[in-house]
Design a binder for these strands. Sequence first.
DNA 1: CACAGCTCCTGGCAGC
DNA 2: TGCTGCCAGGAGCTGT
Length: 277
Amino acid sequence: MPELPEVETIRRGLEPFLTGRTIQGARFLWHRTAHGLDPEEMARRLTGQKVVRLDRRGKFLLIRFESGAGLGVHLRMTGRLRVMEMDDLADDTALRATFDLDNGTQLRFSDSRKFGRVYWLPAGDDSLVEGLGPEPLDGLTLEHFGSIVRRNRQIKSILLDQSRIAGIGNIYADESLYAAKIHPARRGCDLSDAEVARLYSALRSILERSISLRGTSYRDYVDSLGRKGSFQEELAVYGKKGRHCPRCGAEINREVVANRGTHYCPGCQKLHVEPPG
DNA sequence: CACAGCTCCTGGCAGC
DNA sequence: TGCTGCCAGGAGCTGT
């Protein structure tokens, strides 16, 4: 499931293949992949657009055109982006959209579950990503993070709320809470200063570490070059139900918190914390 | 505002 | 072996 580190990895991998290229045609093989526009209309608008830059905002990849317009891509759970030779007939039953480039290559969007979307971004209109919270790795201060987190709501639910903080999904929420020794069902407003500070640094260091390892390949994530990341080798709790906690040896639990499968260590992430002193 | 429940989808898996 | 049926999961939406 592509979250911030995976989308950032894809952005870095794709950028040299797309920058300077002009889209010569686009085709949608699944109509709902083109969000909010008739697929043929989106293809028409894309044709002739020259790529100048790739940005990322939260889990959105933003392909910027010389005209000022752009294309937003959200991979949801199973979306993939790759650049291939136009005549590469590699079998891909999950192919949902293709974008022909002016050098004989083709950007291909595949997505087995069909949840991923591409969005047309009119020039000067970034409303797609304007409602997102701050980037956790881009100037977010501890003080700002504290104001985001201190509300009467389960901390896991806050971390997953893209309008509060952008880019965090189920894997990094669970891993960060484990690293900070905070039970996912604790209320944000009940966290101590020390806990908020631990969560802040855990979240940021885990995201940075994962980017440096080109993300987490859990199930089927691969980057734009088809390579797996390797952060899955460092996961402590996600997908580890029944395994032993590397810190205290207790058995990792999985239960539903904030309507999501949630992994945590009952030994070192307590729901009820004894008051200090 | 918090939050549960529903929707979208299909591969993967459990159970028989 | 092959069938049925359940379910995860991001985000948008509705209803309480």
